[in-house]
């Protein structure tokens, strides 16, 4: 199969280039990183196969539409249903696994991951559609260029915001004052046994997260976001605990007066610098982002205009 042969079959060129762009986009966005998901070879195969289907659907839509075959749009609707199922599948799998984690991900984090899986399939449909469209309108060379542009955009926007974008992350001393345990000036809990106090005194690392603005204050207060911080740091540095040891559970508590978040955890690997880096790079959960400042400002503007 040579290039001239492919060029003499323009529909095939559209579909194959479009599909390739779609699958490549999906592959680039399918990363198994420190969160170890999807780390299993079969998990990756499932998502690559779905990426192939998404790419093919997006690529085929263009020649179908040019052929005035408008029912092709209904297939896109069917695809959307399919990818909503992907979101369900991810949610169910992760929720089932979460019960076996020493430090669980939490429902908000799982929902965030599931939404990303669904969204990325739509992105690969879009990349495939766009590439296929440009191949049809302007030929294969501009099509390849647009495909590459889609990949570059996917890489650029693959990463969401991080915790350090909304909060100042600082290491803070862990103090044990009688039975009271404090990180910086945030009260964490009451520790009874001397044995536990010794372990915490030796192993614990503390951080204080200061919100950079009023919106960030709400985000840090979100329980799902806090659980995500604890899970991510525990995955990267390990945990010094076992099942049935509630005193050694990593925890995050809010200093009510200041809005600062105190984070305490007992890592297996006692490396404050790595710990600081991992807290700073915890992803911000979409479900935890609120914008009360903007909403209030709009309401005020509306009131001024209305009055």
């Amino acid at each position: 199969m040579s290039m001239p042969w492919l060029l003499s079959h323009p529909d095939l060129a559209e579909v194959s280039l479009g599909t390739f762009a779609g699958v490549a986009t999906r592959y680039l966005m399918l990363r198994s990183d420190y969160r170890q998901y999807p780390s299993y070879p079969h998990g990756r195969i499932i998502h690559l196969a779905l990426g192939l289907i998404a790419g093919a659907l997006g690529a085929v839509a263009v020649p179908a539409l040019f052929d005035k075959n408008y029912t092709a749009i209904t297939f896109l609707g069917m695809a959307a249903q399919q990818f909503r199922d992907v979101r369900n599948m991810e949610r169910n799998t992760l929720t089932a696994l979460d019960a076996q984690e020493l430090v669980p991900r939490g429902a908000a984090y799982i929902e965030g991951i599931a939404v990303v899986f669904e969204g990325r399939n739509y992105l690969s449909i879009f990349a495939a559609f766009l590439t296929s469209l440009i191949v049809t309108l302007a030929g294969w060379a501009p099509g390849i260029l647009v495909g590459a542009l889609c990949l570059a955009t996917a890489i650029r926007f693959r990463k969401g915001k991080k915790l350090e974008d909304v909060a100042k992350v600082e290491a803070a001393p862990v103090r044990i004052d009688g039975p009271n345990l404090l990180v910086g000036d945030v009260y964490m809990m009451n520790v009874g046994l001397n044995e536990n106090r010794d372990i915490i005194g030796k192993q614990a690392i503390g951080f204080i997260l200061t919100p950079k603005n009023d919106d960030a204050r709400v985000t840090l207060a979100n329980l799902g976001q806090r659980q995500a911080i604890l899970h991510d740091v525990s995955t990267r540095l390990g945990v010094y605990r076992d099942d049935g040891e509630p005193m050694l559970l990593p925890m995050a508590k809010l200093g009510l007066a200041s809005g600062k978040l105190g984070v305490l955890f007992l890592p297996r690997e006692h490396d404050p610098e790595k710990a600081l880096a991992s807290v700073s790079s915890v992803p911000l959960l979409e479900s935890a982002i609120r914008k009360p400042v903007e909403a209030n400002r709009r309401a005020e503007e509306k009131a001024v205009r209305g009055g």
């Binding site: 009874g192 046994l193 001397n194 044995e195 536990n196 049935g244 005193m247």
Partner: peptide, 30 residues
Amino acid sequence: LQALSHSLEKILNAAAHQLNEDSFLLVYRQ
């Protein structure tokens, strides 16, 4: 007091908190 609280904490999978100088409270968490 420490020894008893320690044993109970391990047996009950509970958290031992200090109420005052002379008393510990075992609380179930998670």
